[in-house]
Computed example of a mutant assay.
Amino acid sequence: MTSLNWSDPPSQTAFPVAKAGYPFIYASIFVTVVFALLGVGPLAVLGLFTTGCVCCFFRDPDRLIPTGEGIVVSPADGKVIKVESIEQTPYYNAPCYRISVFMSVFNVHVNRIPHEGTIRQVRYHPGKFFSANLDKASKENEHNALLLEGPSGKQVGFVQIAGLVARRIICTVQPGDVIKRGQRFGLICFGSRLDIYLPRSTEIAVAVGQKVQAGSSILGRW
């Protein structure tokens, strides 16, 4: 049985929200209050509904993280849309497996570190905004690629990819940072995708169509 622990301190609120969502929430509340003061009831109700949707989108629930050597967890909530073996990629320096997780607007969009270790590279690339479930999104969309080296020397690559609606990628780690498995490291606003690159020695634990949760779902082991 896999044991669990916290990678980040648990929140002190019943409904934790990511800090990046505060400006959107405050703006929605402000517009709602203006409509209410003007007596425009239908728009005030619409604004209240929109505020609730924005709060829901930026929710940031605590997660218990699996412990154990060689475990790689999902960096994102969503649906696995691709599991494949590839020979070369600009995001990993050897033949590897790629697992793609698609996040709809209904998923939690806070991203978490897939394995403990040291961040070796962070590379941001501006780009287009195709639907994140398309193959060309990996190369052509706006994305932020990270390379992590674990204590054993094995590396994990993971790429935040903006989608059709997403227009902002947030990443809070830098090269040289020592991080924990399951630790929060960023967020992609309003629909997106995460690609994870793992060494060929990894025993893959997920399949296409499976739903996963950031930090708590195991993608593979080595």
Rank of each mutant, 00 (worst) to 15 (best):
N133Q: 14
N133L: 01
N133R: 02
L134W: 00
D135K: 00
D135N: 05
K136G: 00
A137P: 01
A137R: 00
S138K: 03
S138M: 02
K139H: 03
K139C: 05
N141H: 03
N141S: 08
H143W: 06
H143N: 10
H143K: 01
N144M: 09
A145Y: 13
A145I: 01
A145Q: 04
L146W: 10
L147Q: 09
L148Q: 06
L148I: 07
L148N: 09
P151M: 03
P151N: 04
P151L: 14
S152R: 03
S152G: 14
G153A: 09
K154Q: 11
K154T: 04
Q155T: 08
Q155G: 01
V156S: 06
V156W: 11
V156D: 06
V156I: 15
G157C: 02
G157L: 02
F158W: 03
V159F: 02
V159P: 07
Q160A: 09
I161G: 01
I161K: 00
A162I: 01
A162N: 00
A162W: 02
A162S: 11
G163E: 03
G163M: 00
G163K: 00
L164Q: 02
R167G: 14
R167I: 07
R167T: 08
R167D: 11
R167A: 01
R168T: 08
I169H: 04
I169W: 09
I170C: 15
I170G: 12
I170E: 11
C171T: 09
T172S: 15
T172C: 12
T172L: 08
T172F: 12
T172M: 13
Q174M: 13
G176V: 01
G176E: 04
G176N: 11
D177I: 01
D177L: 09
D177Q: 09
V178E: 13
V178R: 10
V178F: 15
I179Y: 10
I179S: 13
I179C: 15
K180T: 09
R181E: 05
R181I: 07
R181H: 05
G182H: 02
Q183V: 00
Q183A: 13
Q183M: 05
Q183K: 08
F185W: 15
F185P: 11
F185L: 12
G186M: 07
I188A: 06
I188P: 10
I188F: 07
I188T: 08
C189D: 14
C189G: 11
F190Q: 06
F190G: 04
F190D: 06
F190T: 03
F190W: 13
G191A: 08
G191W: 04
G191V: 00
G191R: 00
S192N: 04
R193N: 08
L194C: 15
D195N: 05
D195M: 07
D195K: 00
Y197W: 07
L198D: 10
P199F: 03
R200V: 14
R200E: 07
S201G: 14
S201F: 10
S201M: 12
S201P: 14
T202V: 08
T202L: 11
T202Q: 04
E203W: 13
E203A: 13
I204S: 13
I204C: 07
I204D: 14
I204A: 14
A205H: 13
V206W: 11
A207I: 12
V208C: 09
V208R: 06
G209P: 05
Q210C: 08
K211R: 11
K211G: 12
V212Q: 06
V212D: 12
